[in-house]
């Protein structure tokens, strides 16, 4: 497969995962704000921004401006519309490699979001809007699995999707625990109710609330939540699950390309998978969880740059001999 094509498929998929992630995060936050005191809401928006590696728009920290900036602002690299546009541009490059159904769905979703603004959704139904974006992304994923050959290209899409998911989950946990540890230290623990709602919102932003309850009941313990999102082998948004898929996709690609240069990528993805498979939450929590999460994000970044170097843009010296 052409390197350019693999690159485009990878990024198309990555950007769409980002769209879905942001939509879910913003949606959970907007809904939660209805039940919580304004001070808590403000803190939570700050966490959300931190987890997306974004900053608040200048001179505005209210929910509406932040939502606007993270959704419709084309100049904001972290916004939903920017990611959707990037996904669509990548899809256009490989129009003949993906099915017509996939292209049409992506195009439709892009047009839907690009034709409205914050004033159209804010006072009426922000939830309905974000849900439709999530569903649009899910539909694309479903169409991908149902209509595309599950060959090399599909595996590159899996790779992009799960690398994005793994690092987003790690970033989200990091922001949450940064906040949790701080309030712990300063002994100004908020009222139990706000605290509880916070964790509910956190789980929901990972579509994990119901799945968590099935495993641990509705008794929300930060340690259990960390364990669930980091180490659960079955939950599709856990870090361990993503690491397993990354490893699986890469192995499939290695088999097809038969490349001699894939050793480093295999080692990195195998290590990430094994680290999470054999980890125990007590060990992680007894150490510095934030350092651990930073390490996870770092490993995802390394995997990305290795894949980039091996498959998308290898240095000429490496491929010529």
């Amino acid at each position: 497969m052409l390197s350019r094509v693999a690159d485009s498929l990878y990024w198309m998929s990555r950007y769409l995962e980002r769209v879905e992630h942001s939509a879910r995060l913003i949606d959970a936050n907007v809904v939660l704000a209805l039940d919580q005191a304004p001070a808590f809401a403000e803190q939570r928006w700050a966490r959300l921004l931190a987890s997306l590696h974004a900053t608040a728009p200048e001179g505005a920290s209210d929910a509406r401006s932040i939502t606007d900036a993270l959704t419709f602002d084309r100049s904001n690299r972290a916004s939903i519309i920017t990611s959707l546009g990037a996904a669509r541009d990548n899809a256009r490059q490989v129009r003949e490699q993906i099915s017509s159904e996939m292209w049409e769905q992506l195009n439709r979703l892009f047009l839907q979001v690009s034709q409205i603004g914050i004033e159209d959704i804010w006072n009426i139904q922000p939830h309905a809007f974000f849900r439709s974006v999530k569903e649009g992304a899910h539909l694309f994923q479903g169409l991908t699995d149902a209509t595309m050959n599950q060959g090399e290209g599909w595996h590159f899409m899996e790779l992009g999707r799960f690398i994005e998911r793994a690092s987003a989950t790690a970033a989200l946990l990091d922001a949450q625990f940064a906040h949790y540890n701080r309030t712990e230290d300063e002994e100004e623990r908020p009222q139990a109710m706000n605290q509880y709602l916070d964790w509910v919102g956190f789980l929901k932003s990972r579509t994990a609330f119901e799945a968590y309850c099935q495993v641990y009941t509705a008794d929300l313990q930060p340690e259990r939540i960390a364990e669930f999102l980091l180490l659960n082998p079955e939950f599709p948004h856990s870090l361990r699950f993503a690491a397993g898929r990354i490893n699986r996709a890469l192995q499939a690609i290695v088999r097809v390309t038969n490349s001699r240069r894939s050793g480093q990528a295999e080692r990195l993805t195998g290590r990430l998978r094994a680290t999470l498979e054999y980890a125990q939450i007590d060990e992680i929590l007894s150490g510095n969880i934030r350092a651990y999460l930073a390490e996870m994000q770092e490993q995802c970044a390394q995997i990305h740059s290795t894949i980039h170097e091996v498959y998308f843009a290898p240095p000429l010296a490496a491929v010529l001999n």
Binding site: M1, L2, S3, R4, A6, E96, E152, F156, I253, V256, T257, N258, S259, R261, Y311, P314, L316, V319, L320
Partner: peptide
Amino acid sequence: IELVEGRDLLVHDQVVYMRTTAGL
């Protein structure tokens, strides 16, 4: 056959190659 753009090809020692995930 493969649909390529100019940036997918390169010339080395007067031979044309395309860049693929499996190398040149």
